Simulated assay, not measured.
Amino acid sequence: MNRVFLEKSVSVYGKDFWGRQARISFHPAGAGQGWLWRINDAELIKLSHRNIERGTRQIQFCHSKKRLYAFEHLGILKWMGLLDVIIDSDPWYPYFGGRSLELLENVWPCCRLGNEVEWCTVLKKVRWDYPNPRAGRAAYIEIAPAQEKRIKLNITIAYPKIGERSISFTLADFNTLKGVSCAYTQGWPPYLFYLSEAASVILGWPHHSRITWPQRYEEKEVLDKFIAHRALDILGSLSLLCQDGLLAADVISVCCGHEGDLNVISKAAELICPLN
Results as ranks from 00 to 15, higher is better:
Asn2Ser: 12
Val4Phe: 05
Phe5Asp: 11
Val12Ala: 10
Trp18His: 12
Trp18Ala: 12
Gln21Asp: 15
His27Leu: 13
Ala29Cys: 09
Gly30Asn: 11
Ala31Gly: 05
Gln33His: 10
Gly34Gln: 10
Trp35Ser: 05
Trp37Ile: 01
Asn40Gly: 04
Asn40Ser: 07
Ala42His: 07
Leu44Trp: 01
Glu53Cys: 07
Glu53Ile: 11
Arg54Trp: 00
Gly55Asn: 08
Phe61Glu: 01
Lys65Cys: 03
Lys66Tyr: 09
Gly75His: 02
Lys78Ala: 07
Trp79Phe: 11
Gly81Gln: 03
Leu82Gln: 06
Val85Pro: 07
Ile86Asp: 03
Asp90Ile: 09
Tyr93Lys: 04
Pro94Phe: 08
Gly97Thr: 04
Gly98His: 07
Arg99Asn: 12
Ser100Asn: 09
Glu102Gly: 00
Leu104Gly: 09
Cys110Tyr: 11
Cys111Ser: 03
Asn115Gly: 10
Asn115Ala: 11
Val117Asp: 01
Trp119Asp: 03
Leu123Pro: 01
Leu123Met: 15
Val126Leu: 07
Arg127Ile: 15
Trp128Leu: 01
Pro131His: 02
Asn132Cys: 07
Pro133Tyr: 11
Arg134His: 06
Gly136Phe: 02
Arg137Ser: 12
Ala138Arg: 13
Ala138Pro: 03
Ala139Glu: 08
Glu148Gly: 00
Lys152Pro: 06
Leu153Pro: 09
Asn154Phe: 04
Ile155Ser: 06
Gly163Arg: 02
Arg165Leu: 10
Phe169Leu: 15
Leu171Glu: 06
Ala172His: 13
Ala172Val: 11
Ala172Trp: 03
Asp173Ser: 10
Leu177Val: 12
Leu177Ala: 05
Lys178Phe: 09
Lys178Gly: 10
Lys178Ala: 15
Val180Gly: 11
Cys182Gly: 10
Gly187Met: 04
Leu192Thr: 13
Leu195Gln: 13
Leu195Ala: 10
Glu197Ser: 05
Ala198Glu: 13
Ala198Phe: 11
Val201Phe: 14
Ile202Gln: 08
Leu203Met: 07
His208Leu: 04
Arg210His: 13
Ile211Cys: 02
Tyr217His: 13
Glu219Asp: 14
Lys220Trp: 06
Glu221Asn: 11
Lys225Arg: 15
Phe226His: 13
Asp233Phe: 04
Ile234Tyr: 05
Leu235Pro: 05
Gly236Asp: 08
Ser237Asp: 15
Ser237Leu: 04
Leu238His: 08
Leu238Ile: 05
Leu238Asn: 04
Ser239Met: 04
Asp244Pro: 00
Ala249Leu: 07
Cys255Asn: 04
Cys255Ile: 04
Gly260His: 04
Asp261Glu: 15
Val264Cys: 01
Ala268Asn: 01
Ile272Leu: 11
Pro274His: 00
Pro274Phe: 00
